[in-house]
Write a protein that binds this DNA or RNA. Structure first.
Length: 362
RNA sequence: GCCAGGUUCGGAUAGCGGCAAUUCCGGCUGACUGUAAAUCAGCUGCCUUAUGGCUUCGAAGGUUCGAGUCCUUCACCUGGCA
């Protein structure tokens, strides 16, 4: 079994198992999609099952009966995204985030608590709590977020070192920091420099990775990547669509996570390669794959697999017509089979992306 | 043959005098990017768009300012008794 450090020398996609489950599939299904690891969310796990149960369970891997790799996201993005939609979820302060979500305990979610929880989760890669500004934030607001992100990262690092001492782990987890700064290169630069100074095992691109017109924000992703030394793993949080992942890999990013393949599967949108993936030479334009909306009438009597180029469990055993039928009658098996397919697509994608775009090998 | 009930826009339904007409399903379009999402939004009689026009609720007549809604006859369907 390889180590997490070795694994992320090549690009990998980590689907989001936010609440400690890849919705609709189990760990065996997940292994069968050739997925190497998952991302769980500290914020969500903090409430359910909660730190105590996580600790008693012996960490999320044992709890889930999962023996792949686990990245725990801090929950910073999540809290901000929720607060942005509705202020009742919490408020921000220098000390930390005051969580006030309805029907949940009121908790001061500090960088220290964030790291403590991630140790209870027992992840392989931990992420520092960051202050993720809203998309239309002013420069002044982003300056505050950068300063907070740096201060919190320092506190996370200190707590992380304490925890490493306490636990005396054989395999020390990695700690990543997140680079904020919005669409201000000087702020991104300042954030990156300060975080590099503190010292982390890897770095994430913070904020929203898309422009207002919903294009990949290549300019800033590229810029931030250029601020991080090549020997440090780079994580494009929340990216993304297949061609976006290819572009980011070319920029040097090695770690990706996104809800799209799993959510799309549940929303009946399946990914298919337009030709044999091993023959693909350009993954940067989105023309190499298509969507199949499996609920459409045209598949009602289509007894071929979702994709003839796919060797996933679903495609080897079931037809488009059958999956169409399962979605029609709203059977949960539809979601499972669709999720397995989309995750396998992403695994295949990553293998090809690695061959074609992972130019900077460690 | 007698009695009762039914026939509405692809299917199933609502509707008891002011209606282009309810709801569900289906169909078609969109959306979804560190997951409040097995979700959400729009369209679904015709006129490409309408606070507009036109034609609709088994068929034909009738009553009414006005009928999917009331009356009469006919057609078909479903139950009960023969």
């Amino acid at each position: 079994m390889t180590s997490i450090s070795n694994l992320i020398k090549n690009p990998h996609f980590f689907p989001d198992a936010t609440r400690g489950v890849l919705k609709t599939i189990d760990s065996t299904d997940l292994q069968n999609t050739s997925t190497k690891g998952i991302v769980v969310n500290t914020y969500h796990l903090l409430f359910s099952p909660g730190s105590d149960i996580l600790a008693k369970a012996g960490g999320i891997k044992k709890f889930m009966s999962y023996d792949g790799f686990v990245i725990s996201d801090s929950g910073g993005f999540q809290v901000f995204s929720l607060i942005r939609k509705n202020k009742k979820f919490g408020t921000m302060a220098d000390e930390g985030i005051n969580l006030t979500a309805p029907n949940s305990p009121k908790i001061a979610f500090t960088p220290e608590m964030c790291i403590d929880t991630q140790f209870k989760i027992g992840s392989d890669i931990m992420i520092c709590l960051d202050d993720c500004p809203k998309m239309d934030a002013s420069r002044a607001e982003i300056e505050v977020s950068v300063e907070r992100t740096i201060a919190w990262a320092k506190r996370c690092k200190d707590r992380f070192e304490d925890q490493v001492q306490i636990h005396n782990l054989a395999n020390k987890p990695l700690l990543f920091a997140v680079i904020q700064g919005g669409a201000h290169k000087d702020l991104r630069k300042r954030c990156a420099e300060e975080l590099l100074e503190i010292g982390f095992d890897g770095f994430g691109f913070g904020g929203w990775p898309m422009t207002r017109t919903n294009e990949l924000d290549s300019e800033y992703l590229n810029y931030v990547s250029s601020l991080i030394p090549h020997n440090k793993p780079k994580y494009a949080l929340g990216v993304g669509l297949p061609h976006e992942i290819a572009k980011c890999t070319k920029m040097g990013y090695k770690i990706f996570d996104c809800v799209l393949p799993t959510r799309d599967a549940r929303h009946k949108r399946l990914y298919v390669f337009n030709e044999e993936p091993l023959k693909l030479t350009n993954l940067e334009d989105r023309g190499f794959f298509s969507y199949i909306y499996i609920n459409k009438k045209e598949f009602e009597q289509d007894f071929s697999p979702i994709s003839t180029f796919c060797r996933c469990y679903t495609c080897q055993n079931y037809s488009r017509a059958y999956i169409n039928h399962l979605f029609r009658i709203k059977d949960v098996l539809a979601l499972r089979l669709a999720t397995i397919h989309n995750l396998f697509f992403y695994s295949s994608l990553m293998r090809r992306v690695s061959d074609l775009y992972s130019t900077i090998k460690a």
